[in-house]
Amino acid sequence: MNASLFKSLEFRAGLVSLLIFVFILAVWHAATLQSAPAPAPTTPVSAEQAEYDKLMGKSAPAAGETAKTTGFPTLAQMGSTVVKQLSNPFYDNGPNDKGIAIQLAYSLARVGLGFLIACLVAIPLGFVIGMSPLLRRAFDPFIQVLKPISPLAWMPLALYTIKDSSISGVFVIFICSVWPMLLNTAFGVASVKREWLNVASTLEVKPLRKALKVILPAAAPTILTGMRISMGIAWLVIVAAEMLVGGTGIGYFVWNEWNNLSLTNVIFAILVIGVVGMLLDLFFARLQRAVTYVE
């Protein structure tokens, strides 16, 4: 029992993962050891170097923020930031200083809303396009042109017409998640096996029942693949969008902490973005597995 546990591939892989993690921490630690004390430069510095030092906060330490002033953070500084952030994730000290959970909630709400609207548009439309070769051809040029546009390119237009940064963020999420879902739904619906449709026809199944009971389950794995891709893209885009428009959200948090020159907070936010993205993907992978069938 124990022996097989140690031999199992998963266990060994986990062990190697742990080693890699420890190695990364060790490299980080070693790299920041020398720079951490950061003795005041004795040699005359060039203008650029002085400017750089200033940027990095070396020559003008902000009061009470000593941890931020010593270049790349050490592991200890990083650890204390993580503990500090996680121990009080819900604080709200005004527009520029909110806890990580609040910022995350803003981002997730925007992604969730934009994604939901995209689902409501893409899945019915994809159904129609997938069932009608005529509409498929009619819509194709629009989809081909609109799909490759970076979602952020829509931002100025969205800001101008909607005049609200938060809703513009939702719109950008909508526009980036709609295409993979639309294309996958149309493809999934179009490639439902002829024989299943024939069975439905010989049983005189009504169109709506056919759509829900035959086409939807048959195309569900493909549709969910589209949703999973869309969610991945949406989570990439929300960070950039929030950096651009500011206000709230995890993307704004990163940008704000960079302006505060708090690298530990920036790194912490990066890790949070990664973990949340992974959890979202895992969630959709679960859903995908639930609707996948073996032929």
Binding site: E195, V199, P217, A218, A220, V291, Y293, E295
Partner: peptide
Amino acid sequence: RGVVFQSHALMPWL
């Protein structure tokens, strides 16, 4: 008219 298809045509998710 009941039809039995060559490829059985069962819905694999049911």
